[in-house]
Design a protein around this nucleic acid. Sequence first.
DNA 1: AGGCAGGTTCTTA
DNA 2: TAAGAACCTGCC
Length: 275
Amino acid sequence: MELQLTDDFDVHKIAQSGQCFRWYPLPDNQCRIFAGSRTLLLSQPSADRLHLSCTEEEFTDFWHTYFDFPLNYAQMRAKILPSDTYLSQAAQYGSGIRILRQDPWEMLITFILSQRKSIPAIQKSVEALCTAAGSPIGNAADGQTLYAFPTPEQLAALDTDTLAACGLGYRLPYIQQAAQTVAHDPAAFAALDRRSDSELLQSLLAFHGVGAKIAHCVMLFGFHRLDAFPKDVWINRVLDTHYPNGYPFAQYAPFNGIMQQYLFFFGRATHSISK
DNA sequence: AGGCAGGTTCTTA
DNA sequence: TAAGAACCTGCC
């Protein structure tokens, strides 16, 4: 289907924003997206138009929410104080980024996996997990089978040797334990969605292998807690350099997470890092 | 060839 | 309570 855009949306920037690891660029400016047990081909022929390989019904039922279309990001950017020149510049540069509503379970496992790994290495491990334990959900243009992200049950059922072959390294027991915990009581994990930010944070920190940074990533990208502000090496560099007297968290509550994305995307880009 | 990577845990003062 | 080392593995 075709979609006329009325708000911020940039396929390329979102794919590079660091929140998603299964957005793959394809020839012809297309993008293959996976979300839980769904997949989609996406392209943006012009700034205000989107082409999606799904029906209008599927868009309304799922993707509309996934892309967070109910929230107006141009309006969010307008909240930035002009006096904050660095954030203003960052938001201008990152306009088109949105905070996707990704699956909490998928975010939990993916971000546990991400620690101390490069992005290509993260993607490789995630794909290995999907191939090893996920359900087939279709075929790519070249005929290759596409796999869903494994369910907690599927991942928990995987034997240690197979998991080890996914290149998890020392994170293997973290992943294994998280899978067993969630598979054992999926309702308890789902119920976290209704907890307050601080209660949710505490629950996430209880997972072995989940510290402050990963917990905040899961909150922001999986539970859509828009005030969560993950502090990684890039953000810390930005805060140290451009906010030596402290960052104005109170000013941008409860949307600090959105600003974090702009700061991260801009901070990383201006350091002209490879990725 | 060898350091380093989008962090966390464990160990030591 | 706080700083340092260790941790698997693969990428650059």
